[in-house]
Each structure stands twice: as C-alpha cells, then as structure tokens.
Amino acid sequence: MSATAPAGNLAASGVVPGFPVAGRLVARGSTALALLGALVIWLALLGPFAVLIQHLSFHSIRAALGPPGALEPLWTSLGASAVALGAMVLLGTPLAYLLARGRLPLARIVELGILLPLMMPPLVIGLLLIFLIGPEGTLGNLLADVHLTGVNTFFALIVAEFYEAAPFYVLGAHAAFASVDPRIEQDAALLGDRPLQAFRRITLPLAAPGLATGLATAWARAMGAFGAVVIIAYYPRGLPNQIFIAFQEFSLPGALPFALLLVVAALPLPVLAYLWSARTRSRVAGTEAP
C-alpha cells in the first residue's frame, strides 16, 4: 500500500501531488514572502520610534524639559489617566463580566453603545461632549450643582480620556471574561464559594492576562488622547496637548522632547502588562514548567 500525505499536511510537507519540485519551491517561496511581509510591517511599526530617537539630542531635551513647570503636563496626564483608568475598572469590569455571561438584557444594544465611541472620530466626541457636559449641557447643569464644570477642567480632561479609552478596556475585559468557562465558576460555587469568592479565586486570575492587556491598551489610549481633549479640555494642559502647542510654537524640534516624554510615560505599563500576561498565559497553558 502506498502512503499518501493527507490533504491538510500538503502545505507543511511542501508536496503538491504530481509536481513535487514545483510544489516545494512554491511552499518555500510563500514562506519567504510571509517572513518578508512580517519584517516590513514590524519595521514600519517601529519606524517612528527609531526616528524619534534619531532626531533627539540631549541638549534639546534639557532645553524643553528643564525650565520650571515644564513637567506639569506630564503630571496632569498621569493624574487624569490614572483617574480615568480607575473609573473604567470600577464601572467597566462588572459591565464586561455581565456582557460576557449574557446576563444583560438587550446585550447587543449595550455592545453597540460601547462600540460607538470607538467608531466616532474623537474630535466629534469632543464636540458632542460640550453639548452633554458643557455649561449649557443637559448634564452640565447637574454638574454645576456639585461645582463641577465639564469644559477646560481636570474633570473634563478625565471625561474626554474616558470616552476615548474606555471601550478598549471594556472590549478587552469582555473577551477576557468570555474566555473563562462559566462551568468552572459553577464548580467553584458548588464547592462552597460565594459568587464574589468564585470571582476572586477563579474568574479573576484566569481573566487577568486579558484584563491586563485591555487595561494597558486603555492606558495608552488615555495617555495619548487628543481629539476629544483638544476640544473640551484644552486646559489643564496634558502631554498630547503640550506636544501640539510646542509643535505650533517651536515646530518639530520643540515638540519631540515632549513626544519622548509621552512615550516614556505611557509605554512601560503596556509593555509590562504584555510580558506578564504572556508569561501567565503560557504557565496556565502548561507550556512552561510551574
């Protein structure tokens, strides 16, 4: 009996029935093409970082960031993003969990509502937020009652960052919770856990890598939020806004030090979250020794 490679393995074995040599060449060619494509995309994505480093000098950094108060936009961005992130975790986590478990009525509509800010241009969100939480807005009047103003305040900055970043966290958390088999939550409950205990002991640790990735993405979006921010929270000046202003006033060399500052401030958390979640995933999947 002659052995025939199963159809699914043809590509892997590089054998095209009837044309063995040609088949092997095609397989090698397509692998090389795929590798080349991956390299081009990787270089293209990393290109801006390389250029940023190339065009910066120690002197220009000191000139831009040295004067007193120059780091103020950094603290503003860090503070607003941290608060926005806290709000996302607090409000977004239960929403994402309930969505993932199908316990919300009109779930599709709710999902659409979460996607909407993602689909709308940030500038448009900024304009619409003025109508919503600005002094003349519907919610604006209510906010005024508690001495909050929705335009050009720290609060406005938080709201603008929240709108730009929250969908990334909620969608990431939704996927993370959906990846946890609900039957093992039931198992934990049968074994004596209260619902919150089962969530803490089982769901959260298993969803943590996905939650961390969602959180990191949201953090990067919040730190870099500009479209809605420039409309509704021009002041207090956050880092993206500072970059824009420096660019307008001093052109590229003046803006680049702040760009570096933003990258340095925004990037470590996503990178750490990525590394941690990759390690945790491989540990649970058993591809790494415990």
Partner: peptide
C-alpha cells in the same frame, strides 16, 4: 473534565 487550570 473542568479543573481550575491556574491551580495545582
């Protein structure tokens, strides 16, 4: 079988 995969 449904084990708790993150636990020993």
């Amino acid at each position: 079988t449904t084990l708790f995969p993150h636990l020993t």
